[in-house]
Design a protein around this nucleic acid. Structure first.
Lengths: 225, 225
DNA sequence: AATCTTTAGCTCAGATCTGAGCTAATTAAC
DNA sequence: GTTAATTAGCTCAGATCTGAGCTAAAGATT
């Protein structure tokens, strides 16, 4: 089972190898609530339970490609920019054997999920409003969701809608509403404006047909002006 | 070995598996310079070249344990709190085969490395002063060092000496000198003091025998007072 | 059409932060 | 000893940040 330890060995690649999986928290905002995408597990293991979409890594496949493939196959959606979060390596994590899971996060606007959500094998769970659903996920997936949310919140403190959840152009109110949902707190209007404006480019247009006084419309701009 | 759980497929674990390695950037401060520990590679591969200490993961081993083992075996040092940085997954990274490398960072005071540095198979490379050494590391290790330094700098912005590089108690000058080395820039004296003092606990003692006016001695304190 | 509600955009006093500069306390050099 | 150099700790004016409150501009309600 084990190759000998000391003698010059044929190849270091003779070491036992773990299975490697990717699991992804797909985050979006729906109905003013930060949500994560769940899929119902198929015939393989833990049949019928809700879990994050994931997959085993295929031969020579890149992690990001495995994430995009798993989102396509399991949830029927197009992921965008999967980002690695952490490797979970508890040998007892998965009772099928020795499995490392590389957790990822991706951000997808609700419009990109609507087709997938018609299936009854796909649903959203609100991170804030359905904590019991998140806490009950198998394979330590609750921890992945927590890390994903933490990452998203940190990203949304730094820049205007870095996950591109909003369609451009948008008003500062729309942007602030989104950031408040992500942060889970209310944000001071002027402080928010003052921080974000330098990172936005004005379109010259004004919003129209909305409630209240029309406001300028903006698009995301590169940080360096 | 593993038996299948239920019918349809033999086992998902029949997928091909990558080799998994850990590589660690051990950071320290020596002679007023932020340094990373390198070891000379042994008989296995790339004989004689300097590289970060690393190892293949053993059966059911935790990543953190593999890091500590590799530091013990390859560098003869006791690591402290290895922290995961990123998984490098380029299939062409290693010409021996399909190898995922889980990069880690650890912080160790110079005193903990002095024994190891007597060996000519172990050296320090200054991140700022020997960029060509870092840039020439094999297996994409330069990228690991860059991520490790980035992580350390971010950590040192948040808290007083989170890597515990300084022996307690210390003066604010010693702390600031350390933080300046890590940051690579000079830090405003009073701004630094004002930010750090609430995160320190005074010992009531004063420094003695040092140049200049004696100053208070401090120890690190938990963030929550 | 008058009034209410909502949102935008600005202003300004007060709060907070910044860092140069001052005085103090010690060691080092002469 | 006397003077220079170094570092500590504080102070205060100026810079910056904050957010309540004001006026403006639109749709909604009556």
């Amino acid at each position: 089972m084990k190759t000998s330890k000391d003698a010059p060995r044929a190849s270091l690649l003779d070491y036992p190898r773990p299975s490697v999986a990717v699991d992804t928290a797909v985050l979006t905002v729906a109905d003013g609530s930060l949500c994560v995408l769940l899929v119902r597990r198929g015939e393989d293991h833990r049949h019928g339970r809700w879990a994050l979409p994931g997959s085993f890594l295929r031969e020579r496949e890149r992690l990001a490609d495995a994430v995009l493939r798993s989102l396509r196959e399991k949830a029927g959606i197009s992921g965008r920019v999967p980002r690695q979060l952490h490797v979970f390596d508890d040998p007892a994590r998965d009772d099928r054997g020795w499995v490392l899971s590389v957790a990822h996060v991706d951000v997808v606007p609700l419009a990109g999920l609507e087709g997938a959500l018609k299936s009854d094998g796909v649903r959203l769970a609100s991170v804030a409003e359905e904590p019991e659903v998140i806490a009950g996920l198998p394979y330590g997936h609750a921890e992945i969701v927590a890390k994903a949310v933490e990452w998203l919140q940190a990203a949304y403190v730094e820049a205007p809608d870095p996950g591109a959840l909003l369609d451009e152009p948008f008003t500062l109110k729309e942007l602030r509403d989104l950031h408040e949902v992500v942060a889970g707190t209310s944000l001071m209007r002027d402080t928010f404006r003052r921080f974000m404006e330098p990172q936005l480019a004005g379109t010259g247009q004004m919003s129209d047909g909305t409630r209240g006084r029309p406001s300028r419309l903006w698009v995301r701009a590169g940080r360096a002006e």
